[in-house]
Nucleic acid binder design. Sequence first.
RNA 1: UCCUGAGUAGCUCAGCCGGUUAGAGCAUCUGACUGUUAAUCAGAGGGUCGCUGGUUCGAGCCCAGCCUCAGGAGCCA
Length: 478
Amino acid sequence: MSQRIKIKALLTGELTGKEVTVKGWVRAFRQNRFIALNDGSTNNNIQIVVDFENTDPALLKRITFGSAISVTGEMVPSVGSGQKVEVTAKTIEILGDCDPEEFPLQPKRQTLEFLREKAHLRFRTSTFGAIFRLRNTLAFAVHKFFNEKGFVYLHTPIITASDAEGAGEMFRVTTFDPQKPPLTETGEVDFKQDFFGRSTNLTVSGQLEGELGAMALSDIYTFGPTFRAENSNTTRHLAEFWMIEPEMAFYDLNDNMDLAEEMLKYLIGYALEHNREDIEFLTQRLLDEEKQKPQAERSEMSLLEKLQFCLDNDFVRLTYTEAIDILKESNHNKKKKFQYLIEGWGADLQSEHERYLVEKHFKKPVILTDYPKDIKSFYMRLNDDGKTVRAMDILFPGIGEIIGGSQREERYDKLVQRMNEMGVPTEELWWYLDTRRFGSCEHAGFGLGFERLVLFVTGMGNIRDVIPFPRAPKTAEF
RNA sequence: UCCUGAGUAGCUCAGCCGGUUAGAGCAUCUGACUGUUAAUCAGAGGGUCGCUGGUUCGAGCCCAGCCUCAGGAGCCA
């Protein structure tokens, strides 16, 4: 038997005239004669032509939607018009039957909500095939980008002891019996007896550890799972997600923004170059979906156009203060169309304000900088005005905040002062403070939510559809 | 967690003012057809109307509580 060839390779047509073996899952079986076969190597199917008059009817009956089969036959130019090449089957073997009465998927459009409940099978659909091939490409491109720039991929811990970072609720890590944990004399849980001899949690960010690496290796990045125990029920939050956190010594905020913008464009460009077909499929999918909507609600740009637009245009950069002025003077604000009206300086921006800036005012990605210190974290570098910090948020249309970053406070005294002001215990973070005591230097970094990037590139609307097995409140099956 | 909406066949949905035996398309099964591309044509099977309780002569429909899902908000990446 000839060696099995993946469908992506077959569809190039290079093997026309040769005998090939192809294996995959049946996507359609029409007229007892035409099998559309897919093996996940590409969004496209190969058409298998069956000589049904000379094939055992019992075998034909087992070729059903979803079954796994192996076909050996000749690659030939297609007689039909829908495809260039096809395989004329000589032998067909059923590898795995698929009872159509039991199989939850159907050869038709199914809702994303339904498929979310069938996460173990949704990879079999065209949409999720495209999404997860794109996710893979983007993950690979992240490593390629940083590797080409001489960054060191640093593995920061997933289990952390510090709960001082203030980045949200954490998942506890313990080997204690929840029914009867050991208690101290005063009746509190005695974490000294726990596995690590102290209270531990799943990481909410690798940044602080990442900074330690950057203060020796110059440029590092992390790319790993991150956990937040927030009770968030939105289309852009997960309890377990993947985050990319570069940290660069001798970078100021402008260097930081330059790197972030270059990286996002590199990643989008890489996906367009290497997974064009998948993006085109998802673009068409969105267009079909929008046909149902009234003209006014349709997007101005298709997914493909939107991605290309991001590559071709510089991101807008402005300060928080300038953004407040724009919002305050906007007709939207004057006509009281914001739920939260912009009164003055100092308040955090709501989602509606960010969306207005990105989607209505500038109509392109926006980088906001220099936020009031009171609404940002303790580690961000204080500006000379004493009121703002060197923070930056990158806002994308439809996604909101895709990157959050800052230049870090490298001055020991100022950092300790900020920690005291914000109630961050300095004793617990003695190791973090040590970097400011011994050879401290200017440095900066940011965090990119990987799933938010995948959301943007795939054009999907719900973050639970761009991670294979989403973890969210009340959601941990599979 | 808050606000809004939804839950009826395997899937997507309709179901009037509370009234007899709850419907359609797709899917599935049976048969026909056989160069199809979401194949087509004919027929058949398929229901705990989310759960619990209440109102009523009578509830898919009205009321209360709960569960689940979706969208929006907050937290943020």
